[in-house]
């Protein structure tokens, strides 16, 4: 016996946010402002092709190639572009080199600017209000939540990203990696170490298990 009207049980339910985004997509594609194929390409790029491995390759090269490290320090935008990692939002990049005296840490207090071209999509915590509001006011407490306690003699400098300027932290090269090639060093460079909420892994902790943590 068919119903004389459809209800939620036999029809599908679209939540408000889903319906609103579908409306926006239809409106913009109907107007010719967005190409549906471009949407798929963008997602493919950010979900599979761009990720923190790009940044890790930059860091590992800086650790093994002093000329490249100098270039990175002077003009990170150009040095990183030379490796094929372009900023799609047209932003400039600055490389922040950690030293025993100074640890660099990156936040975007206003929204969530992030060096997508080298790190992929930002993690949830980076976009969250607690990180954005506390990174500047109490960086040591924030780092402790990431399990990172720095020596008291190490100063912490927090850098606030903007749409025009984004930062890539170059963590210190771990001890015990003398003579390693850049390729071998790449897995030691975690995403968090390039935001400044972690350090590069030390060789003992690498291996099949540690790679999961670095992802």
């Amino acid at each position: 016996m068919p119903h004389d009207h459809h209800d939620h049980d036999d029809g599908s339910h679209l939540d408000d946010m889903t319906a609103r985004v579908m409306a926006l997509e239809k409106l913009l594609t109907d107007k010719g402002l967005v190409d549906p194929a471009a949407l798929d390409r963008i997602l493919d790029t950010y979900e599979t092709q761009v990720g923190p491995r790009n940044g890790a390759e930059v860091v590992a090269r800086a650790w093994t190639d002093p000329d490249f490290a100098r270039w990175l320090e002077q003009d990170a935008t150009a040095a990183i572009h030379s490796m094929g990692f372009g900023g799609r939002q047209g932003e400039h990049l600055t490389a922040l080199f950690n030293t025993p005296e100074r640890h660099n840490m990156v936040v975007c207090t206003l929204c969530s600017c992030y060096p997508w071209s080298v790190l992929g999509l930002p993690p949830v915590w980076y976009k969250s209000m607690p990180y954005r509001s506390r990174a500047v006011s109490e960086p040591r407490a924030v780092l402790a939540e990431f399990g990172l306690t720095l020596p008291e003699g190490t100063a912490i400098r927090v850098w606030d990203s903007t749409a025009e300027m984004r930062y890539l932290v170059i963590p210190m090269r771990p001890a015990g990696t003398e003579g390693w090639t850049a390729e071998k060093l790449v897995p030691l460079v975690t995403r968090d170490s390039m935001i400044g909420t972690g350090l590069a892994l030390v060789p003992d902790t690498t291996g099949p298990d540690a790679e999961g943590q670095a992802a």
Partner: peptide, 27 residues
């Protein structure tokens, strides 16, 4: 004000509408 998800690899998106909103903006 605990910072969420500091330990693991959380997904970037938790629903398809979030993915689409992101892609529309970039497009």
């Amino acid at each position: 004000l605990a910072i969420p998800g500091t330990e693991g690899a959380e997904p970037h998106f938790f629903a398809p509408w979030q993915v689409k909103a992101f892609a529309l903006t970039v497009a």
